[in-house]
Design a binder for these strands. Structure first.
Length: 118
RNA sequence: AGAGCAGGCCGCCUUAUCGCCGCGUACUUGUUACGGGGAGGAAAGUCCGGACACCAUAGGGAAGCAUAGCGGCUAACGGCCGUCGUCCUGAAUUCGUUCGGGAAAGGACUAGUGCAACAGAAAGGAUGUACAGGUAAUGCUGUAGUGAAAUCAUGUAAACUCUAUGCGGUGAAAUGUCAUGUAAACCUACGUUUGAGGAUGCCCGUCCGAUGUAGGAGGGUAGGCAGAUCGAGCACUGGGGUAACCCUUUGCCUAGAUAAAUGAUAAGGAUCCGCCUCGGCGGAUACAGAACCCGGCUUAUAGGCCUGCUUUUUUU
């Protein structure tokens, strides 16, 4: 089982992100909102993380939360591998307003990934 | 030793596991192995100054903005250093000053305008009251009175203003280049060097101008490389200078991302605070995240260290 997170799994395409926000389906597991969309052009799952500036003014805080979300995805992405050839573009948005503990993020990501795999 | 003021420096550490972004070496050329590097003093605010780049032009004028003793430093500055004067403050004093520390927005009010508390009849194109003098007549003259100042003018420019000096604009999403693409392509209308229409904030002037403008049809991309990290670079040796700083010797290479790496988790330690059963338990460890690069300024900052000055107490 690999726990790495190479460049190919980062969601970068501006077009795809716009499409994801416009057409993606959402799934809420507090304190995280997941927006996802299956796209045939993807060779693997691609994810991005986001923290609204409205709730966290300081860049340091936003960076930390994004890193924690990314880390949690990296450790639990195997939950998602058993799909039928379908690949998702996923956007994790932290919607809480307080500084989180890693455990909260971790469990939220885990449960949302399990739901996605179904 | 404590307190205050001023200046400077540091700004958590170690290990393990799993990751991320560059670089180097090796080969079996790969989602390979090994080695080594990977946020700050402010990376922040984007307030000044430069470097660099581009612009169908950057010239003259008006306007606007900035600066303001004198001298120096610097690539440059509105920054820094020195110095003189002013003001505040401490000490000494032969009462003349001298020494130490600190502050600032220190050009000009014999060009004009504005403003000047209280008092006063009146504060700028004034002339009341009382007394005296004088005249054809009149505040024409003097004294008293208010005040810092009463036809003698003074202060004030973080008031207008004037003077001197400086300032073209834009800003790395700049710009160049490679690849892809019919891409300076196609159709229609308008316009034709006697100038449509534009650029330069304004005016003059200058410049560009068929690769134009408007509409239509159609097609696609949002990638790579350069810019971009070897530089007004860092540390050190010696010398010059009161200093800012300059010259010089030797050595070093010290983040380079691009939907944006520099991390996450766990354990242990360090420092500080609180509690008490004096050995533990609990808590805290700031401000804050590079985005082309430098020099400054400003603002934020838990805790700790160093230097100087002043002062208090104790000891000798």
């Amino acid at each position: 089982m690999k726990f790495n997170f190479p460049k190919e799994e980062k969601l970068k395409s501006q077009r795809l992100i716009e499409q994801l926000i416009a057409e993606g389906r959402t799934l809420k597991t507090f304190p995280i909102k997941v927006i996802y969309l299956s796209d045939a052009s993807l060779e693997c799952h691609q994810i991005a993380c986001s923290v609204p500036k409205r709730n966290f003014k300081l860049a340091v805080r936003r960076n930390r939360i994004k890193r924690q979300m990314k880390e949690s995805y990296r450790l639990h992405k195997h939950l998602l591998t058993n799909n039928n050839g379908k690949n998702f573009a996923i956007l994790f948005v932290y919607i809480g307003k307080e500084k989180p503990l890693y455990d909260q993020i971790d469990s939220a990501i885990q449960s949302s990934l399990k739901q996605l795999a179904l």
